[in-house]
Design a protein around this nucleic acid. Sequence first.
RNA 1: GCCGAAGUGGCGGAAUUGGCAGACGCAGCGGAUUCAAAAUCCGCCGAGGUAAAAUCUCGUGUGGGUUCGAGUCCCACCUUCGGUACCA
Length: 827
Amino acid sequence: MDSNSDTSGGYQPSRTNLPQYSPGEIEPKWQKYWHDQTLYETPDHIDGKRNRYHVTMLPYPSGDLHIGHWWAMAPSDMLARFYRMNGYNVLFPMGFDAFGLPAENAAIQRGIHPQDWTTANIERMKEQLKRMGAMFDWSREINSSDPQYYKWTQWWFLQLYKNDLAYQSEALANWCPKCQTTLANEQVVGDGACERCDSTVSQRLMPQWLFKITDYAEELLDFSDMNWPQSVLRMQENWIGKSEGAEVRFELAPQQDEMELTVYTTRPDTLFGVTFMVLAPEHPLVEKVTTDEYRTAVRAYQDEASKATEIERQSTVREKTGVFTGAYCVNPMNQQKVPIWIADYVLASYGTGAIMAVPAHDERDFAFAKKYDLPITVVIAPPEWDQKELDEAFVGEGSLVNSGVFSGTPSKAAIGIVTDHLGEQGIGTKKTQYRIRDWLISRQRYWGAPIPMIHCGQCGVVPVPESDLPVTLPKDVEFLPTGQSPLGLSQEFVNVRCPQCGNPAERETDTMDTFMCSSWYVYRYTDPNNHEAPVGTEANKHWPTVDQYTGGAEHAVMHLLYARFFHKFGRDIGILSGKEPFTNYFAQGQVLGTDGQRMSKSRGNVVAPDEIVDRWGTDAFRSHLAFLGPWESGGPYSEGIVGVSRWLNRIWTLGVTGYVNNSNSGDQEASRIVNQTIQKVTEDFESKSFNTAIAALMELTNHLTACLDRGDLSNDLYEESIKTLLRLLAPIAPHITEELWATKGYSTSIHLENWPKPDQEAMIVDEIEIPVQINGKVRSKIILPTGTTEDDALQIAISNEQIKQIIEDSEVRRVIYVENRLLNIVI
RNA sequence: GCCGAAGUGGCGGAAUUGGCAGACGCAGCGGAUUCAAAAUCCGCCGAGGUAAAAUCUCGUGUGGGUUCGAGUCCCACCUUCGGUACCA
């Protein structure tokens, strides 16, 4: 077979006329060809094609592409390629989230500047990424540490500031002692650990910049039109933590001017059961209400509490402690005088930092009341309550008792009724509370985008004019982490004229959280060279939203929430369109070591992708990853790459071996299998079930291999079948398919081909074997023409020897027949 | 504690959503080829039972239930993995 006959149609590397499949030779060759042909550069618009925007989360340039990157990116690439072959103009870009601590840490260890380290890493990782053979459009690459990029990150900051969504506040902030910087709440994970280095986070009081993400809390809870994993939506919902309740004001006793105690409660129905009040130790009112008699004890307790770590304070197993302040207030419902305590189980940062304690109906208050011998008044009757003391708090629903005019009301209804009453009496209001806090973005580190603000002795805090952006990160700075912002050490950087009054002023020296960079990068890809705006209106019109976003769920309440916030803000200031940044988001699982443990150098279970590519080739590695199991589950990496490697070799054999036709007897069956495979693989791509798509392709390969041996297909059908197999495989293994496609005589890339469409006619079978069950157990099998009626099927079944024997004289009581599926006879 | 996901051969995993459990592959075993090995190809491969077999029995974490029929649906429980945790 001379397949080099058709080489017309321009530049094309000659096919490697190898008898053996040699990925090491063909893969670099085609990668170069694709690059030279700019095959993967995506224009904003192609006539007759719809745009589709796919993004996989951009990597941090650590300098080494690990298996997790492959696991995340290779299937994303398969998906993008699939949609491209299905007639879409698919944009699938790549970039680097290049600011961040590892660059500084590495720089400190090795004496290289973070910028040089980052640049070198990006170079190296790009080479590694290119070996993946993905359809990344490198012409749109972004690097968040590039001044032309972070200029716009700073621009976003200024817009947020202008719209009163960025503010500076001196409050307790999460402090990581190892990273020597503050962190956002979202970056404190598990038992109060730093998301990045796992160190125990403490609290520090310092001036910090925050974004009012809380203004968008309600809208961020609207998940409609978002096709995201339920688990991630639940995490965001829990993180935002909306609760409905009431704020209630308690007068002090004796009454004091302009002083009252406001609490937040979700259970206004239990107001009559309040027997004491609890303030957080840090509550500002503590100083004012504490009586002289109790001052020493209160001070001591406050000291103790401030020393305890956040983890200690938040431990639910820890016994509750607190002290009495000597003060009282009045329950506005029944005028009862109730003591005011302080206790560290009440958090200063949630609600009003003060609670009304209803020990009968709250577990925490109950434990506290028991310990300090405070009264417990039942106001919601538990079912079959015997009027006796409770052994534990009753938190369920019931009827109100001991509640004045409200007694007898069901508790659920009482929540609304009592809240209305509070409003009428002017002692309280309905209140919605959120758990989410504002996003703290200041970082006391070097390698980040400088916050574009200026502190002027006369004008106060002044934003850098947009025309002065970017505020460039000085290169020559001592960046050893000291807890002080390194930028403060550079006089050249710090000293500036106030843009308003022109007097000497100082620049803000903190840098921005790197999550800011990644909150808007998907828009920059769509317009990477725009010098007037982060993204132009025209570009945004073409690519308004990411149609398919993929990446790890570990970013559920960090990146994925911040990006939604940015999008909604961008929409509100009119530069973005669409409701959500990522309409479809898919979270792949995590690959583990072969031992089922997280991969880590210390465990010695790290799998190095480069070595696998060297030995088996990119196509085999991509196929193996896709074949391992469901993408969303992840799981242990298996060594069995030899399986898919053998398979690709069989496909190679199919592609390069001359076919000798003996008969056409296998045509009908082969045609059916080919078309069924098209259907199956198409469905599997749509549902991202790459593992089963590969299984189907393997079955087709096995069948065609048998046909090649037997020679029982017509020449045309054999050739068509191979070409179909190649196109179905192209998104998974782009190189071998490209090579074999060229072997078939094509001078244009297989990746420009259309996805095969199944021929429904060819899939029709005339006969089908179905199981015959007696009382639900398979006893025999019969072959029926497709579409056989129940009566005919039953006739055939009972004339079957096996079935006849079992039924004998028994009465057939019922027949269940599922056409083309099964026959069940109940006797 | 609460929320979520999942438990299927020696292993990774399939199962058209209530219809032949174990597709596809790894490992293993047997054979062909080879001086030999690698590679390749063919066959077997849940457990029990049997000389061997069958259209026999059992079998999808455990125990119940619904159904002609359950890996799939319902109830209770066990285990594992994620998330979250005094949020009033």
